[in-house]
Design a protein around this nucleic acid. Sequence first.
DNA 1: CGGCTTCTTGAAGATATTCAAACCCAGTGG
DNA 2: CCACTGGGTTTGAATATCTTCAAGAAGCCG
Lengths: 234, 234
Amino acid sequence: MKRGQIEAVWRETAQCQDCGIRDLVLFADLKEPDFRLIHLPIEEIDFDAGQVLYSAGDDGQALYTLRAGLIKLVQYLPDGTQRIVRLLKRGATAGLEVTLGQPYEHTAVALQRTSVCRIPRQVVDRLSRETPRLHGQLMQRWHEALHQADDWLTELSTGKAPQRLARLLIHLAEPDGTVTLLSREDLGAMLGITTEHASRTVAELKRQGAIVELSPNRCRCAIDQLQCIGAANC
Amino acid sequence: MKRGQIEAVWRETAQCQDCGIRDLVLFADLKEPDFRLIHLPIEEIDFDAGQVLYSAGDDGQALYTLRAGLIKLVQYLPDGTQRIVRLLKRGATAGLEVTLGQPYEHTAVALQRTSVCRIPRQVVDRLSRETPRLHGQLMQRWHEALHQADDWLTELSTGKAPQRLARLLIHLAEPDGTVTLLSREDLGAMLGITTEHASRTVAELKRQGAIVELSPNRCRCAIDQLQCIGAANC
DNA sequence: CGGCTTCTTGAAGATATTCAAACCCAGTGG
DNA sequence: CCACTGGGTTTGAATATCTTCAAGAAGCCG
């Protein structure tokens, strides 16, 4: 796990306006004149699976918008055990806390090949001061993060392991009904169980036919069956 | 559990400026002219233990600032099991999501006799539009809530029951080293364990001398001992 | 092909749940 | 005044679930 560095790819700031996923991201509501307020480069950066975007406690100078891929936010307990507190998907924002002058609260790690836009803190500060159109989005982002945190707690930390895993898989499933399983260790850190038990629980769902392995760690999942396992109805 | 109604006590809006805990609350940064923008009454309301401030899904018309007391935010799973996702103490804000036009996401219940200020949504909307001084505080509030949510997950949903309980008690402890224990059911809903197991775990901490019952449900707690139980060092 | 990590499996023991029964205590009404 | 009731709490015993430790299998990379 080392920092992503060399593979940084530049972009002119102007290109934000033509961003392919602009309606999804933090700058969704900005209008043409707002973009002229951006006087620092916004870089597009790629990370390989396992690379660290930033570490908890680092003095944050930038936040990140996720263009593609998957990021985990990890929090450590004093005794060293770790918990994954959130997963970020396309369109999500990482490191919002830096806009409040705080250091990063989590360690952010790419789980797949991931592409992000790195937005310097000052850019957000300035837009925040000079155009009202960013505010709504910022609030929205905070709200989304909080909502996900609450759901995460109630869904992934409540009930028996198979229920929790089933609920997680539903969230992780692609529209086409497939999932790419994460490492057993990460599954454990999300569900609050040991790596071994995560492994057993995955095996159990396979045995029940709720998920079928297509290729290594790539599964087709029976959503309705997962749903009733998640609700403890079957 | 029914709504608090009759005991509502009025306050003139002007009194916000003289609020005894103003430096703690959402309006901390407002200046004199800002208060003139408040054209709807801000009521001060008291709730008894067990009363519901609002319910999940309700169309929220107001948010609340907690002047004194303790509030739990409860989230329900489809199968009816409930989890307490956050506790709000003096100075905290409940129902922030209404500023985004959303219904309440949780059910808010007073755990003790509790005093709040009820701020109509429109007041915040208007202040938000017309004075920049509320923004910082709003962001700060979102951030605090999110931070508490993340900590809650890592500290209260990770490890064995005695560790979790110890960590919770540390949070709940007053500066003088005493705690008022919550009902076993609520403890369970916070720690993700059954009511019975919560009861047993409380008994265990008593046996170990980590907490000593002074009067029913009022305890003196040995913070350092709780800390090392929480860290699984002893 | 090693050598490494990750995943899987087994078995013993620890931890938590379930269901039931007893208990405590405050409030009610005879 | 006391018996009765109902809520929350405690306790016990059987069972289910999870962890731990250890060992084997499978996959990956130089």
